[in-house]
Design a protein around this nucleic acid. Structure first.
Lengths: 160, 160
DNA sequence: GAAAACTGCTTGTAAACTGCAAGTGGAATG
DNA sequence: CATTCCACTTGCAGTTTACAAGCAGTTTTC
């Protein structure tokens, strides 16, 4: 892998800087979509099948995602986030907060981003602990940030 | 502008998700390069001229950058960050910290990212105040984070 | 146990984007 | 007034993206 420079921001851009990688990671992270079919069927932005296949492959090569077999459903592959990808939670938080503030984001979808940003580093840490449980087999933490985010979304979607 | 979805993260990706936008913003932000020529000549990654021109145009269209004439050098255009772009500082901090931790970043260039990350939100706020001075004509703040980052870089470059 | 549906892709094609080299036209410099 | 500086633009080849279709194993259904 030939890198353009050793600058950390440039390296991050080389790994994540395209129109789909972060969106796929967002769906795995916040949507808990774990298979190709789930990711394809639930894609808000309508990702094309070849792009999804290619991005999953690249994310695996970059060490952000791992694949494992589904016990009891032999043809299904389960994708999991690595620690490296879970460490992107603060990036996602900031990116979501920025987009919610400066771009024409829908109120319902912004609710999650705002809730997560307002929760501060403590909430981000708890979310990372939850992701370590879901993806890396760590013990289940007491708090479910995913449930809280879903509640925030539901509350925002209720209001007319 | 047709957006793929109203998700804040997706919108951020649509604006910033390519191989150059964030790199150009980084150079304006941390390098204080303010003209086309400076950005081209000091590009660590060797940006092509047409890409630089196109990215500056797009960043202006997206409201992240403004252009103004250089008094006393009529053909020179000075580019400035908008508040929207200055608000990306926390994103840059997180992205730099992530790249420094998980990707093969050079120690000298990582020094800045690490110093900024360790400075916490307070340092980021002070940096944003400095950028508002440099780009938006706000009063000069007492602290120069840019000078501190440069010192961190110099110190790291000295060590063998 | 044959047919249908599910699952995770691959292939084909056209359009858009990227990277490199070269060129352009006005401004400043000597 | 010739040369260099400056901010791009243009042409072109290669890569990436989007959309549609197809395909080979695996269940599930009847």
């Amino acid at each position: 892998m030939d890198r353009r420079s050793g600058c950390p921001i440039n390296l991050s851009v080389e790994v994540l800087g395209d129109r789909w990688s972060l969106v796929v990671l967002r769906d795995i992270m916040f949507g808990n979509f774990r298979t190709y079919g789930e990711l394809h069927a639930n894609s808000l932005e309508g990702i094309a099948t070849n792009i999804l296949a290619n991005r999953l492959k690249r994310l695996m090569e970059e060490g952000l995602v791992t694949a494992s077999a589904d016990p009891g459903h032999k043809q299904r592959t389960i994708y999991s986030l690595t620690e490296m990808a879970i460490a992107l939670v603060p990036v996602m938080v900031q990116l979501g907060a920025w987009g919610a503030q400066f771009l024409p984001a829908s109120p319902e979808l912004s609710a999650r981003a705002i809730a997560l940003a307002e929760g501060g580093p403590h909430m981000a840490d708890d979310f990372m602990a939850e992701l370590r449980h879901l993806h890396l087999g760590a013990p289940r933490p007491g708090r479910s940030v995913l449930a809280e985010l879903d509640a925030a979304y539901q509350a925002a979607a209720q209001k007319p």
